[in-house]
Design a protein around this nucleic acid. Sequence first.
DNA 1: CGAAGGGTTGAGCCCCTTCAATCTTAGTGG
DNA 2: CCACTAAGATTGAAGGGGCTCAACCCTTCG
Lengths: 273, 273
Amino acid sequence: MLVLVPLLFARDLVLAGTLRTHRVNQTRVSLAPFVERLSSRVEFSHAEEDAILALPYTLRTLEAGEHFIRDGDKPLHCCLMLDGFTVRDKVVAGGSRQILAVHMRGDMVDLQNVLLERSDHNVQALTRCEIAVIPRTALEELSFAHAPVGKALWYETLVDGSVFREWIANVGQRDARTRIAHILCEFAIRLEAAGLAKTSSYELPMTQDQLADAVGLTPVHVNRTLMALGREGLIERRRRSVRIDDWKELARVADFDPSYLHLPTGSPGAKGA
Amino acid sequence: MLVLVPLLFARDLVLAGTLRTHRVNQTRVSLAPFVERLSSRVEFSHAEEDAILALPYTLRTLEAGEHFIRDGDKPLHCCLMLDGFTVRDKVVAGGSRQILAVHMRGDMVDLQNVLLERSDHNVQALTRCEIAVIPRTALEELSFAHAPVGKALWYETLVDGSVFREWIANVGQRDARTRIAHILCEFAIRLEAAGLAKTSSYELPMTQDQLADAVGLTPVHVNRTLMALGREGLIERRRRSVRIDDWKELARVADFDPSYLHLPTGSPGAKGA
DNA sequence: CGAAGGGTTGAGCCCCTTCAATCTTAGTGG
DNA sequence: CCACTAAGATTGAAGGGGCTCAACCCTTCG
């Protein structure tokens, strides 16, 4: 089931030529962003950094639309996003689906698999993705062998939970205009934090149908609302590309306060407050 | 700010007379249900159990409606529910609020405060509550000193996250009838798991206004929907008391599958599948 | 150049909201 | 024991935000 794809991963790394011959080196390079991400919140010793870099993993490419984990599976691994976008979703009776979270480079998807045996939702690739597949047992052992690593991973799952809470409020209480503006703001901040775009301008990683599933509206109404936001001069769009013309006003309309993202201090999230 | 209330706590304990003189004994008695809860998922040694029981804490009574933590606070403690009900909620622009979670005896509220510095939501008492207030530093130290304890607490927060995901799907995709039936089913299972009621009959811990805030509907529509569920013979109500006449049918209508609650095996959740 | 996926727009409808009134129940004080 | 009160539950009527259905358009790609 797991496929080694040694030549296709983190697109901005230029070490492809050496990968096949330097397996250890490949390992160190691929998980390095993971170490950086975790260490933005917890201080690591060199030994701990090395332990993270020594985690066993398999590189894998997912095609757009491919399901990686399905509701009810008992996954034996977690995946670290190296490139591309994935979503987590649930399908309810009647067949409609709710997107629960969108993940991008640097995110650890489904870290709850470290401890929860059975997955309660699907994980699907939005775009072609490169992921590092890490056995749950390795993550569990590492977490408890090195307390700071465990702390950092626990922290990640707590932030996950915080975003879920904001999403409950988003779909539960806000009208379409506010709801969509809010998710546009969230993407802006998170994409910039991940080094994938500037807050003022980015490529939306999803279609309007998918956006609709994320905010609990119909695609038709998402479209009308996006058009309206454009007409009001808050954003400009051309297909998937989004430009935020008036960040402050959009954030106001969106009722957006980035503190729920719990970004490390110094991140762009600060500007949104 | 923290008040010792030595005579009012876990109502089914009959040791009130000895509390003032046997501080150590009081401690052990009050956190015992906490040990039991955690050990349903992780195996503890005697030393670990003792370490949990030795956690410092303060007993406190909250009056109905009282806010315990507010959005933006930097809480230095977590609270273990000994009796009563609390909710976590967020208030959005415009003033409407979304209830994010309902907590009952045995639940550890706001365990994310162990690592996240700033609270992103409020915690409010629904009814009069007895809680054990535990310093976050004590929980953090314990978690990393005793890996199984850390594992159990991490587990608790992951289950929290799983419930949040289900709530996103609930408010995002389901119609009023399904949504309300779903939350009634969730309460039934959780109340029974907490030993507070039978699945077939329980006391709803909230008013229809509060229920409305939990499911993202108006109180008026919640009322109409409850009345309709009653007319259809799925439930019977008299004020807050709920009796489920046809569990299987209600669960079907609710699109309810309790696996998202990740209850320990052997819990009543099994029957809902 | 044709097909396919996704974006855009219109018309009509319905679920849920809003506003407002009435009813029920529990609690209080005389 | 009963009036009084307040909180919460219930019901009605009317309106609107978002849905459904369906058509059309635009871009990309083979």
